[in-house]
Design a protein around this nucleic acid. Structure first.
Lengths: 220, 220, 220, 220
DNA sequence: TATGAATGAGGTTTCATTCAT
DNA sequence: AATGAATGAAACCTCATTCAT
């Protein structure tokens, strides 16, 4: 694309990086709009790139999806750390994180693809571990402060977040639809407030369940 | 109950009727396991039938899915009415219905199929209306009794319930997995208890939003 | 169907024969309406019989089609003989036969099924030979009487007859469509009148070509 | 010429354009050999391309068939105009056109597919109208010159031409078969010469009948 | 014997992935 | 390095044929 720019040591690294960013962004939108079954051709069309360019950067569709997931999780980890650092009250930090994550969930939806069973790549496994650890920290602190019911754990939080409905697409007449996730996160937070009164009869999940959940629900 | 079968001039052969039941049962399982993108061939394989047999009873995949949805909703309507009739306290009736529906949802999952846009058939539209009306009745009564926060409506309930993740498949080692939905429904119920403290800033959804939700999320 | 009628020596032979007649009649109609690709199920539906009953009488679809063809050809042979016996002028006999056959062709159409290559059964081969011989007789006599151009033969006649367009189905509004075959047979007959003026540059076909024609055009 | 290809933003790749040509050519042959029910897989096999390539250029089988029909009709329209321009005698122009069209018909046969009922696309409808108008012109002029019987019209001509049987496939031993259509067009032309003596008792067809003919006979 | 339910091969169509340009 | 044309496996669906009732 830019064969005439010799000075840089590794030539068109800038273009390439830009392409990767754009592919990831467009792919998020496409998958949010059409679900995981959206075709790569659609991603190519919307990004103005050729399909070959996408495959140059991501060996296959799964890899593209994993990259999106990694990116979203990285942002979430950052947000957890920042909230803990900035907010004086743990409950406030917790709600802030929750609202952040649900916004990610609803606007940059993980593509749904039940039934695919591959092991996630090491990068994804790593960031997932980090995110769970960060959330664990946040949850435990909030509970120690007496602000959150004691019978839930960080794994519960992740799964509950994923039970917030994804954002509705806009109406046919073009009027934008309000993001209902902002409603349901409120209900959820109230339910998590200490002390809980409805019994949680089933034992809490662990890492194993989280991994199975992501694998069956998102193919990740 | 049987939208695609004609008015039954002769009472269907016994084995044929059995097959229909079995197809519906197996299809529920398959779609729960693999999502909507599971192939009809897979349903045929698991039910020990030929694909042609499935297509004899359901003209296409969509019809099969709708049939399952109708069946599940019919059971839910019945449960709402029964709970209202049997339970003295509206809150108890409400929790009973919620636990029932989430169990349906998690064990007999609606197939996920984002991005498909057909209008639902008349039978499905009808039972959906019935279910919404029954839930409306239940919710309003519970709110009048002062047991549920006033800023949610029946449409909220439907959307939240339908977003609770389906039951996790059993582990590879065969150990059965507890149905975590039973945990989250508890948190959700606590969040719905009167009075809510977290504000629900976004306006409540209406029938239009419900329909769009089902269409985009389930293709129904 | 009639297990209570014992007197006849071979029991329901009458029913069976009736069924065969009805199947042939209905199948002719169905194939004329929908073409050869009409399903056996459609024939069963219109005749009020089960598919099994049809397969009891005809081992497969091809056999059913062959039976129709044999029946039509038998009628044609009879007509040729009768015309020769009854009409004093050969040209009159010839036109009578032509109008008869084209009516068969247009109203009880052979099913079209190009590309199938099986050898016709002996019964069909036999009646075809008979029909060709009868037409040969008719054509030669007409030519000897000086009424028909000399550069055509009976094989030409068969192929030309098959170039008369099939009857159009009735219009959607139900108004019946006139049988245009009655127009085109007139043009054809004028073209066959002696003497011809347009040269027929290609050599006349023989039995071999007729057989290939029926095989490729009708699968017979 | 290319109903399904977009306005060609970039001039199609050379090999791609070649492929389109080849697909059309091979498809004509295949449909001529095996009829409309020939599979796309067969077209792919004979053209040495993958099935997907065919579907890249034609969205479905019907589109491919329509494309062929449009091409053939375009050639016919051109021939009519050229004959009228070049031939001094209208009858000569007429016979030239007839021989041209029957050769098209017999060698590049429209696929037969009775019973399918879709409306033809706008491009096909347009060229069909053009062809009918051109023939109307030719026929009327020939009749005014006193060379053709007055009781037929352009619609008759089209129906007769389209019913002439397609060229026989070559014999198994490889010997090529003469195109018998060249014989029958001679007889037909003699039959169309003025004055006709056999009465045409049925009224002439109109555009409505032509359209119904194409729809039922070719699915076009 | 008659019925119509069940079967499964085969046809159309889609799309992840490869590869010539 | 980028493009998008080509590939072919796999999905949906139809129907000739078989076979249990």
């Amino acid at each position: 694309m830019s064969p005439s720019t010799p000075p840089a040591e590794r030539p068109q690294r800038a273009d390439a990086r830009q392409n990767v960013e754009q592919i990831l962004q467009v792919a998020q939108d496409v998958f949010a709009d059409l679900g995981y079954q959206a075709s790569i051709a659609e991603v190519a069309r919307r990004s103005g790139l050729g399909m070959g360019t996408i495959y140059r950067h991501f060996p296959n569709k799964t890899a593209l999806v994993e990259h999106i997931a990694v990116k979203v999780m990285q942002e979430s980890v950052a947000e957890v750390r920042q909230a803990l650092a900035e907010e004086p009250a743990t409950w406030t930090a917790f709600t802030r994180v929750m609202r952040h994550m649900v916004r990610l969930r609803s606007s940059q939806l993980f593509p749904v693809s039940r039934g695919r069973a591959k092991e996630p790549g090491p990068e994804l496994a790593g960031i997932r571990t980090q995110l769970l650890a960060a959330l664990e920290d946040l949850v435990v602190r909030t509970q120690h402060a007496g602000a959150m019911r004691d019978d839930v754990n960080a794994y519960d939080i992740v799964m509950m977040l994923n039970s917030i409905p994804p954002r509705l697409p806009d109406a046919e007449d073009g009027r934008p639809t309000a993001d209902l996730a902002d409603r349901y996160i409120g209900v959820l937070l109230d339910g998590l407030r200490a002390p809980g009164s409805e019994p949680l009869s089933v034992p809490a999940p662990g890492r194993r369940e989280i991994d199975r959940f992501f694998r069956t629900e998102y193919g990740l």
